[in-house]
Amino acid sequence: MSKTVLIADDSRFLRNLIKNILFKEGYELFIEASDGAYAVSLYKERNPDIVLLDLTMPNLNGIDALKRIIEFDPEAKVIICSAMGQKRFILEAIQSGAKDFIIKPNFNELIPAIRKLFC
């Protein structure tokens, strides 16, 4: 799979877990960020096909990073992956431009959510 995936999460363990899930599905090109500000910078520099953003990160939270990415590229394919699955966070993420919201650590919906982006 030749799609580039930006994984932004302050937990190295979760970044690796997500990479392993995606690698098993054929994804091989990964960019990693441990904070929201770096994720925005990497998006602007590398223009990945998919962005997986956590909500709780240092330097810039996921919602603000999402807003900056969407402001830079309104067509960005961003999925929020967060343990903070309360309805208000999901609504704010979708209203801010996220294409989907996956509640960690249940990643069963991750691959179907990514596939939907490219149908």
Rank of each mutant, 00 (worst) to 15 (best):
G26A: 12
I21W: 02
A93S: 15
N106M: 07
E28G: 13
I63N: 06
N59E: 13
D10K: 03
I94K: 10
K87L: 14
P48R: 08
F89V: 04
G36P: 07
A39P: 08
E109W: 05
I50R: 04
A37V: 05
A83Y: 08
S41Q: 11
T4R: 08
M1L: 07
N61F: 01
K3N: 03
K116D: 05
I70D: 07
K77I: 02
L6V: 00
L60V: 00
A8E: 04
D54A: 11
M57I: 02
Y43P: 10
G26F: 02
L52P: 12
M57G: 03
E71H: 15
L6D: 00
G26D: 04
K116W: 04
D9N: 07
R12L: 15
I7Q: 01
L22Y: 00
K99T: 10
V51R: 03
P112N: 07
I79H: 06
L29W: 08
A98W: 01
M1S: 08
K99D: 04
D54F: 03
L29S: 15
A93N: 04
E28H: 12
V78Q: 02
L60S: 01
V40M: 10
I102H: 07
P105V: 00
L66N: 03
K99Q: 14
N59H: 11
G36I: 01
P48L: 06
Y38T: 13
I70M: 14
K87C: 09
I80P: 10
G26I: 04
A65D: 01
G85D: 08
P58N: 05
N106F: 10
Q95D: 15
A113V: 03
C119N: 14
I94W: 06
A8Y: 00
L17P: 06
D64W: 02
L66F: 06
V40G: 02
D64M: 09
T56I: 13
D9G: 02
I70L: 11
F107T: 03
R88V: 15
